[in-house]
Design a protein around this nucleic acid. Structure first.
Lengths: 255, 255
DNA sequence: GGAACGCATTGATTTACATCAAACCATCCG
DNA sequence: CGGATGGTTTGATGTAAATCAATGCGTTCC
């Protein structure tokens, strides 16, 4: 599945800019790098039909590109990098509701406004579609609709797991669950198995906002896990999982 | 929309039983009471095609009818009553991930096993479909697929709100948000506006498991809200909202 | 009637995590 | 180089909510 034809848009490049001093973009040149993305669903032959609707956009680390509550004009397919999705309270408290990696769709909401914000964690490439053309697109490509339903169902399952984590798990259980999830995500087909080595693209602050904890608690918990021989905390964003079983026991709540 | 043709299955009744001493069921007689359900999507003319697939089931209060992790054989459409959906940890901690009211679909998961449990809060009626026939159903009724995607998107938005609540809100904010949600849910088109009177079908324990709190904290918080003149706590499951603005301020975190 | 049960309320105490605070350590940059 | 900056770690203290515990109050059922 990983050697499927890369999907080339044949139109002439056009540049657009996001935000002040923002990212430059061209028409999507390789809109699908993994079997889960748009192009693999609708097939390379259909691409010319999309070329005036889809634009590839490169978003630098830290830049937001969906604002919670803003009119929902576009619809995105992540093609590389990691995106954080979040909701915020008026006083600044934040909850990251998920991290979107290549293949994920953003902006499905039926509402006319985005229900969440989105920001690039590292350098991100997305394919951007106009939501106006969404209905036509779905009518023309039934497979896309099936794919979106599948994606939404998967996200719903992930959301339910996260609600269990946020509502009922302790700090240690949360961090253990997170690390295991990240490990599983990095072991998807097409990725070489990395022997427990993880490169988390997000900061401690992001992890804290994802797990409903503070930066300090995340840091302390990782230190404790290190002291227990469960993990190794490397420079920068590297973490190595030394004992999956120990983390499993923790994550399941069999303290 | 509320006076649409009721959708009659014309087949002869058949009885089935759920669990020991369980509920009796017939073929679905009125599978749609609200514009969101299956029958309103596919239309009364198509019903005969479904009559061998859909079975109406009546589930008594407290009875579980989906077990987390069990093979996902069926797919449900709630037609009356309230269902609680939950996930549990091995040691018994529970998180209710949502309450499903008439019109909601259950068991969409792409996985072969249910990702959550489901239990009737009060007396519940559901339309039950075999998941084997789901794919055919979707192929035959594109509108149903569009409807399911819409439903899944809405649930995703609700799930994100709940993650913000569970991860970042205080107990008071959680209870205030819950009461407002319940009020909005009871004010859907087709319902008479009830002047702040709510009849919550679920126990304090259910509310606690939904909000990631304990029974005691929910009870204390309601008592505190009563002392602040925000609500009136009636006998049984009745709660009257006396000041929506006060609850709004609380729920938004403008403490 | 009155035991037994489930559910709710209220009080006393404990605790896991947040908050406040300080130091550490890269990288960047004039 | 040396000082800012942004992220991380570690320590001391505070607190919101959990836990432990007792009481109340309808229902059900001998």
């Amino acid at each position: 599945m990983s050697d499927m034809p890369s999907c080339q848009f044949e139109s002439r490049p056009r540049r657009i800019v996001i935000g002040a001093g923002g990212a430059q973009t061209d028409f999507c040149t390789t809109c699908s790098v993994r079997p889960t993305s748009v192009c693999s669903v609708i097939g390379p032959d259909d691409i010319s039909r999309l070329s005036d609707a889809a634009v590839e956009t490169i978003i630098p680390p830290g830049r937001g590109f969906i604002e919670e509550g803003a009119p929902a004009t576009d619809f995105f397919n992540v093609t590389s990098g990691t995106v954080k999705l979040f909701k915020a309270l008026p006083d600044g408290r934040r909850q990251i509701t998920g991290f979107a990696s290549p293949g994920h769709f953003l902006g499905l909401a039926v509402s006319d406004n985005y229900a969440f914000g989105a920001e690039a964690v590292d350098t991100v490439r997305v394919c951007r579609f106009s939501r106006d053309k969404m209905a036509d697109l779905l009518d023309d490509f039934p497979k896309l609709e099936r794919r979106l339903l599948e994606e939404a169902s998967n996200e719903l399952v992930a959301a339910q797991n996260q609600m269990l984590l946020l509502g009922r798990k302790t700090a240690r259980e949360r961090v253990a669950s997170f690390l295991l999830d990240q490990m599983h995500a990095s072991q998807l087909p097409g990725q070489e198995s990395s022997g427990g080595r993880l490169h988390l693209p997000m900061t401690r602050g992001d992890i804290a906002d994802y797990l409903g904890l503070t930066i300090e608690t995340v840091s302390r918990t990782l230190s404790w896990m290190r002291s227990q021989g469960m993990i190794e905390v490397g420079k920068g964003y590297a973490i190595t999982i030394l004992s999956v079983p120990k983390l499993d026991v923790l994550a399941a709540g069999n303290t």
